[in-house]
């Protein structure tokens, strides 16, 4: 009896899981599908599931805009912002996790609260700051903004991962003569590596898909892939085939990269459970 309930529960959970997965994946699936349609097929009603695939949209997209220029900007910005953010967040999270003070809790909450502010609320000041420091339409400017917007989340995630590391292990390092720096780099970092890797991956994804600041702070020189997509959405009306092709091209690298590293990600996110 109990076994039976268990089996039916398991089937239910499996169906639910697949349902959610399909629901989440459907837009991406439809986007990829549409990118292989002609513009006419793309807007036909009812939508076609089976059709003769064509690469015409891709050909036009490559013809009209230089994909590699945008892609390179995105790579520079996401990798740069992530690297700097991690470098700043590791010492911050270390001190919060292992040398907490009365204000640590409050600082963490305050940092997170900055994420609750709608970005548009600070659009004008940040735009003016960027303009006055000549960082408009530069990768450097975008790196700084992306890095700062993600920093709170990264510190939070690293903080939770570091909290999983038993303090006596670090203290043993200190007794062995390690300086604070050596303790962090030689003892803590190797232990928290899965967590750091998944944090970096998350940051990479967030930066890759970041559109608000990219669209507002860049025009051509430093425009990343999100701007590349946007350039196919407005001027001469909507062309779903080309828009889908551009979007597919924009998300493909991070999608593939995420897929490859998902094992690492899962390991990092369940770090505490498997310790």
């Amino acid at each position: 009896m109990a076994l039976k309930t268990k089996t039916s529960t398991r089937i239910g959970v499996t169906i639910l899981g697949w349902g959610i997965a399909l629901w989440l994946f459907f837009p991406i699936f439809w986007m990829i599908l549409t990118s292989f349609k002609s513009e006419v097929q793309a807007i036909s009603t009812p939508p076609k599931l089976f059709f003769m695939p064509t690469l015409s949209s891709y050909a036009e997209v490559f013809e009209r805009a230089s994909y590699w220029h945008f892609a390179l900007n995105t790579v520079i910005v996401s990798v740069g912002a992530t690297a700097i953010a991690i470098a700043l967040a590791v010492p911050a999270a270390y001190s919060m996790a292992f040398i907490p003070s009365k204000r640590t809790r409050g600082t963490l909450l305050w940092m997170l609260s900055t994420r609750m502010l709608p970005p548009v609320g600070v659009l004008v000041p940040i735009y003016l700051l960027a303009r006055n420091t000549h960082l408009l339409d530069t990768c450097t400017g975008l790196v700084i903004v992306d890095m700062l917007t993600n920093l709170p989340i990264i510190v939070w995630m690293l903080y939770t991962f570091f909290r999983e590391v038993p303090a006596p292990i670090l203290e043993a390092g200190r007794m062995d003569g390690a300086t604070r720096w050596q303790e962090m780099t030689m003892v803590l970092l190797p232990l928290a590596l899965p967590g750091i890797a998944s944090t970096a991956l998350l940051s990479l994804i967030l930066c890759w898909n970041e559109a608000f600041w990219s669209l507002n702070l860049t025009s051509s020189h430093a425009a990343p892939l999100t701007a590349f997509i946007a350039s196919f959405s407005s001027p001469e009306g909507l062309f779903f085939g080309k828009l889908s092709a551009a979007s597919t091209l924009a998300v493909a690298p991070i999608l593939i990269f995420g897929w490859i590293s998902q094992k690492q990600l899962v390991r990092g996110l369940t770090f505490g459970a498997v310790k």
């Binding site: 038993p166 006596p168 043993a172 390690a178 300086t179």
Partner: peptide
């Protein structure tokens, strides 16, 4: 004086070995 410079060695209740 820093812990590592006091000429002491400590054994912890939880052993605190470096797991990696």
């Amino acid at each position: 004086v820093e812990p590592g410079k006091r000429g002491l060695a400590m054994v912890f209740q939880s052993y605190a070995l470096y797991p990696h």
